[in-house]
């Protein structure tokens, strides 16, 4: 009797029809010393918080790194990068936009994951293309540095009764010409990695009291000469002149 060769094939087909991917949502929230803050409020106010998220990855118990897929919604995220906008243009967010977006929508292969990682920044390949013809979410002129070439990966700022500060983070020291950048000596992409229990209820707190621990009265546009950049860069795990750091302390998974 001939072996019914199609039976194992049928099994494989049946298995692959089962959902092999899990959708998940990564939400972000602005904090000051562990307390939620917004553009309006009585004590510390947000003045800006917008950033790009890319390279969303999950790491399993073997240390294998699995790329999560971003859902291209044509507005806030394409398949490589998502824009998070946590300011609503009210109160202290004077140069902001009314639209907000607090989460990244993604899917990942089913698995047991121990850690989650993502990058605050736009991938090099998309970072130096012409912003005037880019598709969403890379079509936001407010998030682009036309004179340095590339996007501002992060806008962040706060103010309270004691002090205020804002920063714009992006790649500097780029070589070539605006439409033909070959490399950037200071890429300034922030890598975040957090431990994970499940893919449910994932919320990342962004603590501006850590980002701007001592920053005061001035601002940081990522320039190499800007001494006010040293402290916030260190908090983001970035090198700025003599200030060297490799682990960010600003983004943390909320319990």
């Amino acid at each position: 009797m001939r072996t019914p060769y199609f039976i194992p094939l049928l099994l494989i087909l049946l298995v692959s029809c089962a959902p092999a991917k899990t959708p998940f949502t990564l939400t972000f929230a602005p904090h000051w010393d562990g307390n939620a803050i917004e553009c309006t409020g009585d004590s510390t106010q947000l003045t800006d918080l917008r950033f790009y998220v890319s390279a969303l990855q999950l790491i399993d118990s073997d240390g294998s790194v699995i790329d999560a897929e971003l859902e291209n919604d044509g507005e806030w995220q394409n398949s490589d990068v998502a824009l998070i906008d946590l300011e609503d243009g009210r109160g202290a967010c004077v140069n902001g936009s009314t639209a907000t977006r607090a989460f990244v929508q993604a899917t990942a292969a089913n698995g047991e994951y121990l850690r989650l990682a993502f990058t605050v920044g736009v991938p090099f390949e998309q970072n130096h293309a012409n912003p005037m013809s880019a598709a969403a979410p890379l079509d936001d002129a407010a998030m682009h540095w036309h004179w340095r070439s590339g996007y501002k990966f992060l806008h962040a700022g706060f103010r309270n009764a004691d002090r205020s500060f804002w920063m714009h983070l992006g790649s500097t020291g780029c070589e070539g010409t605006v439409q033909n950048i070959s490399m950037c000596n200071a890429a300034n992409r922030v890598v975040v990695e957090v431990p994970l229990e499940s893919l449910k209820n994932l919320e990342i707190g962004i603590d501006l009291a850590r980002l701007f621990a001592t920053a005061d009265g001035s601002d940081c546009s990522s320039g190499p000469a800007e001494s006010a950049c040293a402290q916030p860069f260190k908090a983001l795990g970035l090198t700025h002149q003599d200030s060297v750091s490799d682990v960010q302390t600003v983004f943390a998974l909320l319990p």
Partner: peptide, 15 residues
């Protein structure tokens, strides 16, 4: 980096 007026003009407009 700036070699073309088409790129340069974006900074005064949108900076």
């Amino acid at each position: 980096l700036l070699d073309k007026l088409e790129d340069q003009a974006l900074t005064p407009l949108f900076g």
